[in-house]
Design a protein around this nucleic acid. Structure first.
Lengths: 335, 335
DNA sequence: TTGTAGGCGTTATCAT
DNA sequence: ATGATAACGCCTACAA
């Protein structure tokens, strides 16, 4: 129940000046070994630890990275966040986290709060609604401040910041190549993020592939309303001969997965499934779902590397856009 | 790239003293409307926002709650964290989050960092390894500080703090009653958390039930090594006539679920499954898994309520131990 | 109605 | 070798 002890109190108790205490604790060569020892011992005894807030003020550095994420229940974001935290820790940074729950208003709020000098840098993935309403003013507002910002995953031309993301085009094409190779000629693209940048890009890649391969029938099913998308999927798989499905996000992939299970279809023989899910997703699944590995560990790590760099070097106007190569991880759902 | 503007600069630019600026911005009645207006307009123009770090130092309050969680990839913790954040926000608190990845050392580190005046209160769920090694000194160390601490989920006699948790005994018994009612006479208890307080308590409740109902065969399978536990489950379900399985945590439940799928067993006819999973878990599953609802939303909310209370009222020595009643949510896996 | 001084906990600079 | 002072940005008595 005791308040944390301060340098001043140590000084008072020891009958020395507080600058002597400060210097002793920082091992200054100006102070005699004897005094240093005395001070250090007493400080240890009293459990002294420097107040980080005071240090932050003094150094105008918080050693904190702000992280804004749409949805922590989404295992992709959970995995990225985990790795951001791990990596930030290794640089001596803490993270303060805000979840927007895919809402624009919460994103604006979060950005506003974090721009009050609370963090040295910001790692953000914009919300669904931000894209839907095409509102980016709150991002532009922070561009004029000296807080470096990095966007991950959902990069967009409207967001002129450093970024880390995966190669949407390549990843879709390689998945489709694989499915084509295996004989799929009727392929469903399922998306629960029709408005989000990556959702759009993945759809474009899909459409390009279909255009380039006219013998393939491409069916695009999109809705950010889960029950609606599920109904669409059920109907298509029931009434058409669908060889394969490709989910561009976790939601749509797990819906596709459920639909297959509900209809009692057989993965290896009747229908294939590939999705933008991850290892964690598969820990809870059987059979395992084939997925496009976006390497969330890498995303988290690179995001931290880049933001720490910007924090230290200072905000330059050159934009650094990192793109991660995905790989296809084939499981029992797609052979 | 401009540094954030300060009160001093506004004062200089406007040719008034900085206390006039401060008072104007805080709408003090001491200042004339005219001056206030002038100051406010200029502040708005320059995008002034008070530096939170300075405010924290001044008020010796950080408006931040520290959260220490074993594993963000665990959807139970993800859900609790989400609700902690939502609720903290509503009180005007931010959260700074540390993940221990079930490691004692990381927990010690996190606790140490957060006790340097960075947070006004702390919400913690101890790691697996903490229980395994029975090391609680780092918790005792923080008891002597004036930072209120609240433990959720994994409460333990060694942790003398406020707490929020579910009723382990009741929840296990009601699940077993249900299964018994449905005719199960051979029941497996699966646990991936044999060392953790809640794992132990749930096992004890199970054993009590078996003792009270000698006609029921109870089989306890425990291991914190997933492949090992899976092997045990596979073997038992293959070789014995098991009517039902009860998972005391997400890992064990999803392993049990996988085993059923692997063996091609039928849920409604051959085997039942109930686990400590949650709604989110089922969003990715088909068929849905019956679960003991621990109400992570409530846990998050009550945790914040209690810690904010302690922060405001001050740390009393009366311990407040909140216990949440679970409910059984029956799905297609257990009819 | 406005301005001055002190303090939150530190460190760094400049005396003594 | 030690101590006093200023500064980080802010707020709030208290003076003027």
């Amino acid at each position: 129940m005791n308040k944390p002890i301060t340098i001043k109190e140590i000084a008072r108790d020891l009958g020395v000046s507080f600058s002597t205490v400060s210097k002793s604790l920082n091992d200054s060569s100006e102070i005699s070994e004897k005094t240093k020892k005395k001070v250090k011992e007493y400080a240890a005894l009293r459990g002294y630890t420097p107040n980080q807030i005071a240090l932050s003020l003094k150094n105008s550095a918080t050693y904190t990275i702000g992280v804004i994420i749409p949805d922590i229940q989404n295992s992709f974001f959970a995995s990225v966040l985990k790795n951001i935290e791990i990596h930030a820790k290794s640089y001596g940074y803490r993270i303060v986290t805000f979840f927007t729950n895919e809402k624009l208003k919460e994103e604006e709020e979060s950005l506003k709060i974090l721009s009050k000098g609370l963090v040295d840098g910001l790692i953000v993935c914009p919300s669904d609604e931000t894209f839907k309403k095409k509102k980016f003013d709150h991002f532009n507002a922070i561009k004029n401040m000296n807080t470096p910002v990095l966007v991950f995953d959902r990069v967009d031309e409207n967001l002129e910041f450093d970024s880390v993301s995966v190669d949407d085009y390549k990843s879709i094409i390689s998945a489709l190549d694989y499915l084509y190779e295996k004989g799929a000629r009727s392929i469903v693209l399922a998306s629960a993020i029709p408005d989000v940048s990556v959702g759009k890009k993945r759809k474009e890649a899909f459409e390009k592939f279909i255009k380039d391969n006219p013998e393939v029938e491409g069916i695009v099913l999109e809705s950010d309303d889960n029950p609606v998308l599920q109904k669409m999927l059920l109907e298509v798989v029931e009434t058409k001969k669908v060889d394969a499905m490709l989910g561009v996000d976790i939601e749509s992939t797990s819906l596709a997965n459920s639909v297959v299970a509900m209809l009692g279809k057989n993965y290896k023989e009747e229908i294939s499934l590939i999705g933008y899910v991850n290892k964690q997703f598969n820990r809870l699944q059987y059979p395992r779902v084939s997925y496009i590995n976006q390497y969330p560990e890498k995303i988290g790590q690179i995001a931290v590397d880049m933001i720490v760099d910007k924090i230290k070097i200072g905000n330059s106007n050159l934009l650094n856009k990192e793109v991660i190569e995905t790989t296809l991880s084939i499981k029992d759902t797609s052979l």
